[in-house]
Simulated scan of single mutants.
Amino acid sequence: MSSIIPLWDQAAPYAAAGHEDEMPHLIPFIQPGSESAVIVCPGGGYGFLADHEGASVAELLNRAGISAFVLKYRVAPHQHPAPKADGQRAIRYVRANAAQYGINPSKIAVLGFSAGGHLTATLGTQYDAGQPDHEDFVERQSSRPDRVILCYPVITMESYGHSGSRINLLGEDATQKQIQAFSAEQQVKADAPEAFIWHTSNDQAVPVENSLRYALALGKHGIPYDLHVFEKGPHGLGLAENDDTVRVWSDLCLTWLKNQGW
């Protein structure tokens, strides 16, 4: 691991008043010889970032021979579009600097937990090809992730959603148009990236219907996905190292990545 990488050279856009000095950043965990990378987005309801869903996940990826970057994206009082802008900028940054890190620019995945899973699903459904004439080389890059990994994700902003995440991201008075735009299952496109998804069926904080809805949306478009639903387990397990049943999710995920050529 080396020092943090600020996502912007100057003040980050869309800052909340009084918080303009907060700089979203990446923490790199570069694995020598790896040509693939995973950007890790911790959860926290868009109110904080959970420590156990960051560095330990990047270190696990390193042990599997994969480079990783932990994304410290902005949360409340910052609202939309700040988190999405941070996520898109992170993908563009890694792609723009792929040669420096020995990474194939077509092997950049995003992995997210809970609200970080919502950000990941947003990045996997709302992306662009970049601005080819932009003076900033980073902004010329595509923001589309090549794969997404969703860990007990918040997906919908409608029923079965997580009200705390919705309020922190969109505010108390979110319009129906905003709610639909950030219900990722409604935004899947025909070229959306393939996905690995896992959840527990008795998750009381973020119901499993979130993952099921996203899988159904992918299937509707013929996009391959690998979905695992475990019978029991509370929300926020992270690597689930103390749960002998659920902890296998990371092995399943690494096998999936290997089969994807990561």
Rank of each mutant, 00 (worst) to 15 (best):
154 V>P: 03
17 A>Q: 13
192 A>S: 15
59 E>K: 14
50 A>S: 14
47 G>V: 13
261 G>D: 01
47 G>E: 12
49 L>V: 06
205 A>T: 15
17 A>L: 13
107 K>W: 00
74 R>F: 02
12 A>I: 07
65 G>Q: 07
262 W>V: 05
39 I>Y: 01
238 G>Y: 01
195 A>N: 11
97 N>S: 11
51 D>A: 14
238 G>W: 01
191 D>S: 06
153 P>G: 11
135 E>A: 15
160 Y>P: 01
199 H>G: 10
127 Y>R: 06
189 K>D: 07
39 I>G: 08
51 D>H: 10
179 I>K: 11
146 D>S: 12
253 C>A: 15
71 L>D: 06
39 I>W: 00
134 H>T: 07
20 E>Y: 01
106 S>F: 03
143 S>H: 04
250 S>C: 10
169 L>V: 12
167 I>G: 02
30 I>N: 05
145 P>A: 10
229 V>Y: 00
125 T>R: 08
44 G>T: 01
208 V>F: 04
70 V>Q: 10
163 S>W: 01
33 G>K: 04
247 R>C: 15
215 A>E: 11
144 R>H: 08
260 Q>D: 03
29 F>Y: 15
247 R>S: 15
248 V>T: 13
249 W>N: 11
9 D>Y: 00
129 A>W: 00
112 G>M: 06
69 F>R: 07
258 K>G: 10
168 N>T: 05
194 E>Q: 14
210 N>G: 07
258 K>Y: 02
57 V>N: 04
250 S>R: 05
54 G>P: 06
216 L>K: 14
248 V>S: 13
199 H>D: 09
